[in-house]
Design a protein around this nucleic acid. Sequence first.
DNA 1: AATTATCCTATTGTTCAGATAGGAAATATA
DNA 2: TATATTTCCTATCTGAACAATAGGATAATT
Lengths: 148, 148
Amino acid sequence: MLSKKSKYAIKALVSLAKHFGEGVPLKISTISEEEKIPRKFLEAILVELRNNGLVHSKMGASGGYSLAKHPEEIVLSHVIRISGGPIAMLPCVSLNFYERCEECVNEEICGLRDVILEVREATIKILSKTSLADLLRREDFLKAKFTS
Amino acid sequence: MLSKKSKYAIKALVSLAKHFGEGVPLKISTISEEEKIPRKFLEAILVELRNNGLVHSKMGASGGYSLAKHPEEIVLSHVIRISGGPIAMLPCVSLNFYERCEECVNEEICGLRDVILEVREATIKILSKTSLADLLRREDFLKAKFTS
DNA sequence: AATTATCCTATTGTTCAGATAGGAAATATA
DNA sequence: TATATTTCCTATCTGAACAATAGGATAATT
């Protein structure tokens, strides 16, 4: 399951992507209201995204946040990892949240692990080719499809 | 993330699959020790699997558990659903644990949901074609690979 | 009858996601 | 330079879900 944190992070970034290149940063409160993300929670999330180089922040009056990269360059797998959500279904196949499986005598010959590895590959393949720009395009496409 | 419950359920079933057709049921304590699953926890899991028709139980002395179906017929997606783990990465794309996404004005035009739907399809495709028998074959294959 | 096992109901513990609080630091603008 | 605005930082709270445990009732074998 994707944590709310990850989901909020993605939604916030999509919000910023919509205003990419306008030169005016977006305030936390604006994003919070538009995307219905709890104010203080969003604050913490954006700081983390900033520490990981995905967004720029500007302090003080008329400050706010803006994307640090082009929307085509920010992919979901990266955002999810940063915002603390493991992608794999088992800790023993996770790259970033690896944990040994106590009950396995030998991890390398675990059939279940082998399958979950396949699932992870398939998942990452999709999430790492989908950028913020892709999400925007998808929304446009869906909007057109459902308003016709 | 797969819950421990789901993981234990799968491991227990694999254990039973190894003895399929022998006519002698396996005791909870035997499975518990072999797979290092907490005794009482496993008890609860097996009852649930029985209630869902995956295993048979026999009470009394020299009782125990056995598979209710052929190992080829029990697939991972089914086991995971029964043991309470959602497969999808977001509640709004889950079949069995569906929950509306409050902050979405219109689910149908959510770009993120659209991507996560793709991930779910890919995941289910793998998990629903992998049976207990497959897991055993994989383990044999891996064993051969790493002991040569 | 004695032993071995599953069955059933209830309870407990523990972790972590999710959210909140309050004030310090920085910047714009008047 | 004063004031309003906004991000930054540290700390804390809460509830729910996961994981595990306890104790005895019920059933079947020997």
